[in-house]
């Protein structure tokens, strides 16, 4: 059984050991050696985080299913939603690329938001469950693979490429996707993993 000390913090990136100080709301503690963010006092409570993640989850559906754009060329119109674009690559037989795009643009953002939503729910309503640990681990892992901001910039690049070729009309999906990206960035900047982990009870027996 390992001893632990909750008043200490070690920097994730340089291992510098420090004593935790109480912070005012919105304050961020950074590592004096490497400058990384150590922990912070988020202005966003788990309850507000629950609301944010729920909003994002709801937006995710139209963002994936409604057309991002429609294009008229040689007399016919093609529309493309995020999911259709991924499926097209899959049908072309490029499974690896399709899977990667699917993970980074749809699955990872969805599961990340879902895990964080459930974790916020558990903490807001003080539910005792073993799932909290798993949810927090998944949230951390999936954040790295969620690339909504990259997708939005890619969309703009594709748009500029296409604009010379044909008549383009932007779709509802794009509005939802842009909103989703903004809320997702807010969630990432407000989420303080260490305050969530503090709510996980430490077993005496392990």
């Amino acid at each position: 059984m390992n001893k632990y000390n909750e008043t200490l913090i070690a920097c994730e990136h340089c291992d510098l050991l420090q004593v935790k100080q109480p912070l005012q709301l919105g304050q961020i503690a950074t590592c004096p050696r490497c400058g990384s963010r150590l922990y912070f006092n988020s202005i966003c409570s788990p309850m507000s985080m629950l609301a944010l993640t729920l909003t994002a989850l709801i937006l995710l559906l139209p963002a994936n299913l409604y057309p991002l754009l429609s294009m008229t060329m040689i007399g016919s119109t093609e529309t493309a939603s995020l999911l259709q674009a991924t499926l097209k690559i899959f049908h072309e037989g490029n499974y690896f690329v399709a899977l990667l795009i699917f993970i980074c643009s749809t699955i990872a953002p969805f599961l990340m938001l879902l895990s964080l939503c459930c974790a916020s729910f558990i903490i807001s309503f003080n539910i005792q469950t073993q799932w909290l640990k798993k949810l927090l681990k998944w949230t951390d892992f999936l954040t790295h693979w969620s690339m909504l901001e990259v997708y939005l910039v890619s969309f703009l690049v594709a748009l500029i490429k296409l604009v010379d070729l044909a008549d383009i009309e932007l779709g509802v999906g794009l509005v939802c996707f842009s909103l989703l990206m903004i809320i997702n960035s807010l969630i990432l900047s407000f989420f303080d993993a260490s305050s969530y982990w503090q709510k996980v009870p430490i077993d005496a027996i392990s």
């Binding site: 060329m73 093609e78 493309a80 674009a85 991924t86 072309e92 795009i101 594709a158 070729l165």
Partner: peptide, 18 residues
């Protein structure tokens, strides 16, 4: 950000299909 080109390709492939 290297994923950019792959996302662009997926959008182009979906939309240019005549």
């Amino acid at each position: 950000w290297s994923m950019l080109d792959l996302f662009v390709i997926s959008i182009m492939v979906a939309v240019i299909d005549k």
